[in-house]
Design a protein around this nucleic acid. Sequence first.
DNA 1: GCTAGTTAATTTCCTGTGCAACTAATTTTA
DNA 2: TAAAATTAGTTGCACAGGAAATTAACTAGC
Lengths: 173, 173
Amino acid sequence: MNTEEERQAGLAMEGDEDLAGPPTKQELDLNQFLPYRLNSLADRISQALAELYEERYQLNIAQWRILAWLSHCDELTAKKICAYTYMDKARVSRAIQGLEERGLISRTPAPEDQRQQDLHLTAAGRKLLTKLIPEAQAWEAELVATLTAGEYRDLLNVMRKLERQLERIGDKG
Amino acid sequence: MNTEEERQAGLAMEGDEDLAGPPTKQELDLNQFLPYRLNSLADRISQALAELYEERYQLNIAQWRILAWLSHCDELTAKKICAYTYMDKARVSRAIQGLEERGLISRTPAPEDQRQQDLHLTAAGRKLLTKLIPEAQAWEAELVATLTAGEYRDLLNVMRKLERQLERIGDKG
DNA sequence: GCTAGTTAATTTCCTGTGCAACTAATTTTA
DNA sequence: TAAAATTAGTTGCACAGGAAATTAACTAGC
């Protein structure tokens, strides 16, 4: 009946008696476990936002990221995109393919190295972004509307710290 | 040659001249765009940690989450796991299947409703967790080692706020 | 200038997962 | 209490994406 409320049971108060609060015994509480919490939140945000790209612009996340990077880097190669976004190169390759087929980006072999391809937004791509970017920003603004400016800034700072630390430990090493 | 450094180019200083700093033009800066930053960070954390489950315990993320929830809820059903973790029920179903085949959990039809199955850790499952959980916690501890207690607390608080807001706006609605 | 090794990008193969359809058990309603 | 609707969990199908093999272009060593 009330799937919405049930979905919240894990984090919110006990609502539906059938799904009474989980915190019970001992051992690992995933709700206190940062990797889980962070991933769960990020997934939900990403998926919610992905609907915006997908339904309204037929873009998947990889494609959207590439467009966004191109919107402020002007010229890129697949390799750079991999480096900046941490996406797999196969994923990037396929996303680029799709974007080119739709005429949103152009790719021309780099003069100095024929293996590389210089990627640029086309007029169509730029036009699409002038519509999409404000929508994405509006969505983000709504998401962070309850945060103070300080909280927002601190959040980004802490995330930067975590990124650094991630490079120090593990993360493919 | 230096893939490590190149991977960092997006966020850190310009290092390899070939991959000089991206911030250039105008439009959307993904590094200031919370959904992207959050997802990127969470993915990297999740993937790094997933190697720990996968390589050493042959557990995928879904399976690990289920074990972890069982470690402190003692008895669960697939539905509850879906509600708590936001994972698709098919994914949960398959993960449960794998866990049962390996003898890490048991499932018995619930007496009061034969459609449901009560899930429990087996002795083997509990044993595995007594090894895995400390490792996961140690990994997390290392990850957050550079955060102060306050930063850590604030981070979780802000994340809770975002979760709330996410339920308010979009997120499947 | 030729061979061996690298590197950028693509493609192949395969696994995991989301969606939707389905099965089986339960509840509702009439 | 029989038929309709709902619900827990499973399965078929299709597709996204990661690992590794492949191709094409480049560089280094001789």
